[in-house]
Simulated scan of single mutants.
Amino acid sequence: MAPEPSSGAEPRSFKTVEAWIFDLDNTLYPPSSRLFELIDQRMSLFIADRFGIDGISARALQKHYYRKHGTTLRGLMTVDGIDPHEFMDFVHEIDHGRITANPALALAIERLPGKRFILTNGSVKHAEDVAKAIGIRDLFDGIFDIAAADFVPKPESVVYERFLAHFGVAPERAAMFEDLAHNLIVPHQLGMTTVLVTPDGEDVSERMRHAEDAVKGPHVDHVTDDLTAFLEEILLNR
């Protein structure tokens, strides 16, 4: 599907974009792969094992922390003093075989003028594993993960500010691609062109059903259900 503006306001364009910033999970690969489902299950298992509680109770605590603290990890760190590295290593110990190579996406990303980055609430290792499975690992100039952000998650403004400073990116010349609308609020405020990547007709994860992630507001410049086609359209119209 070609790019669409999300509202009546004039969306920002890609004419001067020279830094292309991508979220990882459910953005660079479709939710239909169910990869994040495996991570989600590992989070519940970590909590159940650590606190000696049943799976239902662990799941409830996991979601409570997610909603209150922005990520399950942030809640575990703040409330329970959990070692974030231990948690991240555990939850990302998954089979990436659910992801298939995407040569068309790889070609579109490779053709983007300027630099390309991954900005994720996950780990560098997880991002590298996912990118390798898709066939795009060597196309990025940098990966900024939750550890680089001192384990402060998106959508906190400090995450984006640290990212921009670390890589020397000018926000007014950057575009941000995300599957969660509330993670685009700060990028848009900073001057980025924002894109919400949301699958059409897929059984998506619970995260995308939250009210705050509805397509609304001027912080979402464009919406697409096909990232590859979207990037190809950008390249065609630049």
Rank of each mutant, 00 (worst) to 15 (best):
Asn183Thr: 05
Leu227Thr: 04
Ala181Leu: 04
Leu227Gly: 04
Arg74Met: 11
Asp54Ile: 08
Asn183Phe: 04
Gly81Arg: 06
Phe140Met: 07
His64Ala: 15
Leu76Val: 06
Leu164Asp: 03
Ser13Val: 13
Arg137Phe: 07
Asp49Ile: 14
Leu107Ile: 06
Gly191Ser: 04
Ser123Cys: 06
Arg137His: 09
Asp221Glu: 07
His166Phe: 13
Thr228Asp: 05
Thr193Met: 11
Phe14Lys: 02
Val204Ile: 11
Ala2Val: 14
Leu24Ser: 02
Tyr29Arg: 03
Ala101Leu: 05
Ala9Trp: 10
Asn102Glu: 06
Pro30Gly: 00
His219Met: 13
Leu45Gly: 10
Arg137Val: 14
Ala101Glu: 07
Val130Arg: 05
Ser44Gly: 14
Glu232Met: 07
Asp80Arg: 07
Met43Pro: 01
Leu107Met: 12
Thr78Glu: 09
Ala148Cys: 09
Asn26Glu: 09
Phe87Asp: 01
Val220Thr: 08
Pro153Gly: 02
Arg34Ser: 11
Ile53Glu: 08
Ala2His: 12
Thr120Ile: 02
Leu76Pro: 01
Tyr160Met: 07
Gly168Cys: 01
His92Trp: 09
Ile39Val: 08
Gly217Lys: 04
Ile56Glu: 14
Asp25Phe: 02
Ser44Pro: 08
Phe51Ser: 12
Ile234Ser: 04
Leu35Arg: 02
Ala149Lys: 04
Asp141Glu: 11
Ile99Val: 06
